[in-house]
Design a protein around this nucleic acid. Structure first.
Lengths: 331, 331
DNA sequence: TTGTAGGCGTTATCAC
DNA sequence: GTGATAACGCCTACAA
């Protein structure tokens, strides 16, 4: 049996309410007694029982994050950033890798104050699961009732294409995966096509390169195929994710194509790691910190007053210049 | 204010202790009343208050896992397996990406029943933090007082080298990272050297190849350098991790070396993904499921009776044959 | 400045 | 079968 404030009260010769006050650093207790009580508590290795405290206080000051797909790394940087952001608000973050409904069930047991969901698949979730629990989703809209932080992928592609066009590029390739499962990949693809039409770019056999996967590996192979054909190569390439872009760079280098002299490259995913690739990569997408901040801010808004939060919140992308793009050679 | 068993009691015209029993499906309450109570509870959207329950029950049936380095993927498969294993015991798993002491502090607030720690750095942790809390660490020994699940990396290397020697190989290279920070990498390296001496293998300029990092990337470059020298190539290579091995395969293929005809390869990390590489890789190390099971079993032992658990528990490696090794050509 | 007492929502132990 | 009632450990008026 662990030690409680009653035990301490006895040892200190005061009532346990005094102990409670002292331990909560209330100004209502004489410094002397306070010091004494605290000392005794330390000596006895007192550990507050949070279940009891929460029973009366109702708040855990903790936010739960549902992240069923740990094995896909892409979000790990974001998770870390979100944690930091949450801590700035004086809250803690806890993680579950279960599916959304199981995780939320568990979080409720812990009296979590709010939930952020990263679930990839659009799942039917009984509304009772998240009834009067501040909850938000990122990536895929979980449910039409749950506020959702979205990224404008289309606009990101537009930004990238425009940038390249302004540099004089015309033969631009999109290297990405468009498995129909992932809405985000599809939007990037569609965004590229839109931009393509908008700037009236010439269609070549290489305009769209399907990687068939999201690993560096997939980007590498796809690009390898691309550069090994006889037809005229693109002067610029847009990679649809960090990993894919890493593969692209590798494949281009192996073909002795100098970036950006021979070919320009832009990668999606605005994360610091882009700077550490073989060639520091100019990238598009909302900076990871911005996404984190947006998500966390929204969650706290939700906790304050549920109604003031829009159902969909869209984050706009930026373009970060690094060393992988150059003016197109006049051809 | 949410609804409690008292409210339900009133609506059902029974005492709240009866409601409690009914909701816990006690056989001590007449089916009729039970049904009625459950119906009312549903109607009212009753949600039990777990803080209150735990105040009396002391158990949360949840195990906390401390994993500060999400951004390093290597462990994610293991985390998932551990979660599954824990669920087999009817428990849940929850994750924190904070440092061990912060995470444990938080877990205690949630009345977690036990803790598993993946922390990479050996940190001084005040014993009071984990006083009478079942706790275990994996990877690096956290502290001499905390039970620790270890992997016998040396033996793994011995296994790999022996296997190759039995196939007739003599010129064997070790491609790995031995940054002094990571004890595990060092042990792999040392294990290789031991085996090397044991079998009296000839030292060549390529016996040891330092990758200087743990990414596929690092393995790729190191191997590239290796195969591009003029000196005689090894007939077999051991890669010290999954990612590094992926890089090795890539580099060998680019040099048009056929695996295993021209060169045999073994990779450390006995995970299913090894089968999906360009060449399915024969690998060494404890199967990931075995590690998970070992960790979880130990944790539950610890919860049952703290004293019966050895401080260090060592898991022994296995060798999984796939398609990357062949008999050495007689030279 | 300190102590008393009621309550938070459950479960568990008794009586009835 | 059902109902009081006492914990569980803590917080917070309010009383002293």
């Amino acid at each position: 049996m662990s030690i409680t404030i009653k035990d301490i009260a006895e040892l200190a010769g005061v009532s346990y309410s005094t102990v409670s006050k002292a331990l909560n650093n209330s100004p209502l207790v004489k410094p002397n007694t306070k010091a004494k009580i605290i000392r005794i508590a330390k000596e006895q290795g007192y550990e507050p029982n949070f279940a009891a405290r929460r029973l009366v206080q109702k708040q855990s000051h903790t936010i739960g994050l549902v992240w069923p797909t740990v094995e896909r790394v892409a979000l790990s940087t974001l998770v870390t950033k979100i944690k930091e952001e949450i801590e700035k608000h004086g809250y803690s973050m806890i993680l579950s890798i279960n599916s959304a409904s199981t995780a939320i069930e568990m979080f409720k047991r812990f009296q979590i104050d709010a939930v952020i969901v990263f679930e990839e698949t659009k799942q039917k979730m009984d509304a009772s699961v998240f009834a009067n629990l501040p909850i938000i989703s990122y990536g895929t809209a979980l449910n039409n009732e749950i506020p959702f932080v979205d990224v404008n992928y289309r606009q990101a592609m537009l930004l990238g294409v425009k940038y390249l066009v302004d540099l004089g590029h015309k033969r631009i390739s999109f290297v990405g995966d468009f498995s129909p499962v992932d809405q985000r990949q599809i939007e990037k693809y569609e965004g590229f096509l839109e931009a393509f039409e908008k700037y009236n770019l010439p269609v070549t056999p290489h305009t769209i390169v399907n990687t068939g996967g999201l690993d560096w590996y997939d980007g590498y192979h796809a690009t390898k195929r691309l550069v090994e054909t006889d037809s005229t190569l693109p002067t610029a390439v847009i990679g649809s994710s960090y990993d894919i872009s890493a593969g692209i760079i590798r494949a281009l280098r192996e073909k002795d194509l100098i970036i950006p002299k021979d070919i320009s490259v832009i990668g999606y995913d605005n994360i610091p790691q882009m700077a550490n690739l073989e060639t520091p990569l100019t990238s598009i997408g909302p900076p990871i910190d911005v996404i984190a901040k947006e998500i966390v801010t929204t969650v706290f808004m939700l906790m304050d007053e549920k109604d003031s939060v829009p159902t969909i919140q869209t984050i706009h992308p930026e373009l970060k210049e690094r060393a992988s793009c150059a003016i197109a050679k006049s051809t």
